[in-house]
Design a protein around this nucleic acid. Structure first.
Lengths: 212, 212
DNA sequence: GCGGAGTTCAACCTTTTGATTGATGCCGGG
DNA sequence: CCCGGCATCAATCAAAAGGTTGAACTCCGC
């Protein structure tokens, strides 16, 4: 396994970042960058075409593409025998990391990682091992300890609108509900999160990555 | 002027981005990258030391440094004869661009800009000409047309806390004011923004980039 | 088919908000 | 020097929003 060259696909909408990853990684003798993609869709195409061992995937792809990095990751890992996906992004919040990991990403790194760490992570991913940034690993473990008070879909929806600053009435209109129902959802949210007001609920949910 | 090599300083906390900028720019024969800075403070130091014509400045510098890119830009452009500052960032909101431009940045580019555009912008900056990304230029012109209902410093402060979901009472405590004063500020904010509730005020201000 | 979780709603009460009116002191430009 | 904008506060009041309690109904798993 280790005598083979690791073939890489760079997926990022920023030319500068692609060039940076290329510059940092092509110095490694056992790496070969075989393709680049500026959109998530293109990344999925190229990954499906084969000939790639590890995809370095950004999460944000600008307003140009309808698909985000997490969706692309899911599409790539869905088919068996496909490449591993290593997420490399700027953002370090639960709301970003969790969907990506659930989508099947083998690793999750931050763009401020030193080049050496990046190379190590790529080798780990190629070998099927996980590679998580320390901060991500920390929060993942923390999450295992806490029961992860999951909100229902409806509750998350309501809380998302609360986070946007909407009033109960505005929420009720947007969701075609009565205010009573919205309030009821909020009560359940409060008890689940262990808070007692909308603002603290939003804070708490943001902290836990339940909303973005 | 044009026979001279343009000496560049790269200021960005991400090693990958620095490598990317270096890869993209050092291909140009009239560019020479003479230094890199991983923090805003270091960028100010290096710029003050001289020998630099253009600084490529990021705005976000991670939790490590107390100074942000806009502050560093102000510090660099404050001294006469210093280098030009060209802001190169991911973020494209008024709340980011305006402080940077006010701080004396010669140009403002987005990281998704094609390499060629980047090189052009560096040459423009070296010659003292401005270089703005199209989207930034658009919004700048739009701002000139609109009366630009500027909020006072205090009003912006209050509105920021409103945006965080605080009640008038909490705001009054945090700012050591009476609730009456907070309400008074809010009334002024509403009339200036042409709205009549806190949530719409937050929306409007977000849209205009008055708060982030 | 019982029980629990999720979704929906009503009635009730408290807190917050926004409108209004009015007042004081400070500062800077005409 | 006076005026206007800014920041500060007071008092009052009606309307809106928020939070609590209680209660149906559905769906799903055991």
């Amino acid at each position: 396994m280790s005598e083979r060259v690791i073939r890489l696909l760079l997926a990022d909408d920023h030319p500068v970042v692609r060039a940076g990853l290329r510059a940092v990684l092509e110095g490694e003798p056992d790496f070969a960058i075989v393709a680049e993609a500026a959109t998530a869709e293109r990344a999925v195409e190229l990954a499906a075409a084969g000939g790639v061992d590890v995809v370095l995937m950004d999460l944000q792809f600008g307003p140009g593409s309808a698909m985000n990095g997490a969706q692309a990751t899911a599409a790539i890992t869905a088919r068996a025998g496909g490449p591993r996906v290593l997420v490399v992004t700027t953002y370090d919040t639960d709301a970003d990391t969790l969907p990506a990991l659930e989508a099947g990403a083998t690793g999750y790194l931050l763009k401020d990682a030193p080049p050496e760490e990046l190379a190590q992570a790529v080798r780990a991913a190629a070998a099927g091992r996980s590679a998580l940034a320390p901060s991500v690993a920390d929060r993942l473990l923390e999450r295992m300890r806490a029961p992860a008070a999951a909100l229902s879909a409806r509750e998350t929806e309501v809380l998302g609108l609360v986070a946007d600053g909407l009033t109960n009435q505005q929420i009720s209109q947007q969701l075609h509900l009565s205010q009573a129902t919205v309030k009821s959802h909020l009560v359940h949210i409060y008890t689940k999160l262990g808070v007692d007001s909308r603002t603290t609920a939003v804070r708490e949910a943001r902290g836990r990555g339940l909303i973005r």
